[in-house]
């Protein structure tokens, strides 16, 4: 596989890899490192790459596993702690919309979800993968994914309603 072919095959989903890594690792720098690391690995295994039917799903699985490894290692857990302190500044979403605060809250709510629900919300609601694709990526049955997704969506919604009501009264 030549470099140009390789890049053509793997570059289209670099943003998705980055966003999934950021969802799990919180800090932008960590996520950038993770993305870079993933592409090293893909390039190293470029011979095997053509054997996989769905390179993108494979890459997402690798990203997920890599991020879990990072989170397990102590070094990373220290880093995420530091970064979550000033995270609010660098989320970088535009501030023009008036209900921006509530939108920002969704970010925090997702952050509080269990890891698995976080991944599934990311893959489904943000990246809009089909359940079959997600099943391949996280190695779960589609029904289990639906259950987790439903739970995550309900948790977020209920928390939003709660915050909203507190805000009014």
């Amino acid at each position: 596989m030549k470099q140009s072919d390789f890049l053509k095959a793997v570059l289209p989903f670099k943003d998705k890899v980055f966003r999934l890594a950021k969802r799990l690792l919180v800090s932008t720098e960590e996520a950038e490192d993770a993305t870079q690391e993933l592409y090293f690995k893909l390039w190293k295994n470029k011979q095997k790459l053509s054997e996989y039917k769905n390179v993108e799903a494979f890459a997402m699985t690798m990203t997920k596993n890599y991020c879990f490894d990072r989170l397990k290692s102590k070094q990373a857990s220290n880093l995420t702690l530091i970064h979550s302190n000033y995270k609010e500044k660098d989320t970088g979403l535009d501030k023009q919309v008036e209900h921006n605060d509530s939108v920002e809250k969704v970010h925090k709510l997702i952050e509080d979800l269990p890891e698995q629900q976080k991944i599934i919300i990311q893959l489904r609601d943000i990246e809009q993968y089909s359940f079959d694709e997600i099943a391949k990526m996280v190695d779960m049955k589609p029904t289990a994914i639906r259950v987790a997704l439903s739970r995550a969506r309900k948790t977020i919604r209920e928390a939003l309603i709660k915050q909203h009501n507190y805000g009014v009264s």
Binding site: L93, V103, E104, H107, I126, E127, L160
Partner: peptide, 12 residues
């Protein structure tokens, strides 16, 4: 809010 956030997140 939820869909607004999902949409924005995809822009990163």
């Amino acid at each position: 809010y939820m869909f607004g956030y999902f949409k924005k997140s995809k822009d990163e």
